[in-house]
């Protein structure tokens, strides 16, 4: 019987060794170690043995069974590992294939510029004011110290609807309306919006374009406050090392009036094609609110003062992103629009 057991052991070990898959090995387990397997049979057959041999034989069978089980489990682990590896191999993909695109659109570049400016000024306590695009001559001109017949009206050839109504030529009427509504109270606003002028569309002119203006009115608002505010704006929009300079200019609604240049962000002031070799780029117009404008809106110009500034998001976008033709902003070519997707440096 011992010899029989030894032979059986050899046989099982051979079968274990020969099993190539988890399934085969499981079959071997069931065939030899299962309830109906030869080892169990041997144990069952022990009853026929003399009583004194039974313990010895029982122990022997158990040893063999344990030995076989250990080998089998080792083999099982190995085969399982192999199986997993095969599966992983089969599931491998070409990771260089393109991903499923998430199609998203983006802001128009002008909106991008406008929102950037809005957010900067909101952080400094400004609110956003808006007004109608079809405007009364009064708010567009007269309330801004441009009475009928004023020579500066020639500067802005306008689209009139009637003698007293026109498409606004700038966003300044929003300032006039806000002042009127605030009835002498301090103001801190940014006014973005569409404006219209009677220009033929070409690379640098557009009959419709956008403007964004700022207005601050309060007690003892000084020109130095304007300069400090504009400097923050220039650094935020065009880089921390930007310097600004103010040049005297003329607008009917401000006195004194200035134009603001920034040091060229491309060459840093040495002179290049962006700044036309001057080292400076003209960015916006500004000034101290003209006392006539304040008085017309019911503000006491001796007690309160203010500053205003205005700029063209088109010009800023053209400078910032190197856009050469203003018409690109209104053609809505997807190849143009989609370039304004990414975040800025």
């Amino acid at each position: 019987m011992e010899a029989q057991l030894q032979q059986l052991k050899e046989e099982v070990l051979q079968k274990i060794e020969a099993s190539a898959s988890v399934k085969e090995l499981n079959d071997v387990r069931v065939a030899y170690l299962g309830k109906k397997g030869p080892i169990t049979d041997l144990l069952k057959g022990m009853g026929k043995l003399p009583a004194e041999e039974r313990p010895k034989m029982g122990a022997l069978v158990n040893v063999v069974r344990e030995e076989v089980t250990t080998v089998l489990e080792a083999r099982m682990t190995l085969l399982q590992e192999q199986a997993i590896n095969e599966q992983l191999e089969k599931e491998s993909i070409d990771v260089t294939l393109p991903g499923r695109p998430i199609k998203t659109g983006n802001h128009h570049p002008l909106t991008r510029v406008v929102e950037e400016i809005e957010d900067l000024f909101i952080s400094m306590g400004y609110e956003i004011a808006e007004g109608p695009e079809v405007e009364k001559d009064y708010y567009n001109f007269e309330a801004l110290n441009l009475p009928k017949g004023h020579p500066a009206r020639d500067m802005q050839d306008s689209f009139y609807i009637s003698e007293d109504i026109l498409l606004r030529t700038h966003t300044s009427p929003v300032q006039a309306r806000t002042m009127e509504a605030k009835e002498g109270q301090p103001i801190k606003i940014i006014c973005p919006g569409k404006v219209y002028r009677r220009d033929n569309d070409d690379a640098t002119h557009s009959h419709q374009f956008t403007q964004i203006e700022g207005l601050v009115i309060g007690e003892n608002i000084r020109m130095s406050d304007l300069k400090g505010t504009l400097s923050i704006f220039a650094k935020k929009m065009f880089g921390d090392d930007r310097e600004i300079r103010l040049r005297p200019s003329f607008f009917p609604f401000t006195e004194p009036s200035v134009e603001m240049d920034i040091s060229c962000f491309k060459c840093g002031g040495d002179g290049c094609n962006v700044c036309k070799k001057t080292g400076w780029i003209e960015i916006l117009g500004a000034g101290m609110v003209h006392p006539n404008v304040l008085e017309m809106a019911g503000y006491d110009s001796k007690k309160l003062s203010g500053f205003a500034f205005g700029m063209g998001p088109e010009r800023i976008a053209m400078l910032k992103y190197g856009v050469e033709d203003i018409r690109h902003f209104y053609t809505n070519d997807v190849r143009f629009l989609s370039q304004f997707h990414r975040t800025e440096v």
């Binding site: 128009h108 569409k194 219209y196 997807v334 989609s338």
Partner: peptide, 10 residues
């Protein structure tokens, strides 16, 4: 997935 356009009012 939509891009913002700006077109003319006139």
């Amino acid at each position: 997935g939509l891009y913002q356009a700006i077109t003319y009012s006139l």
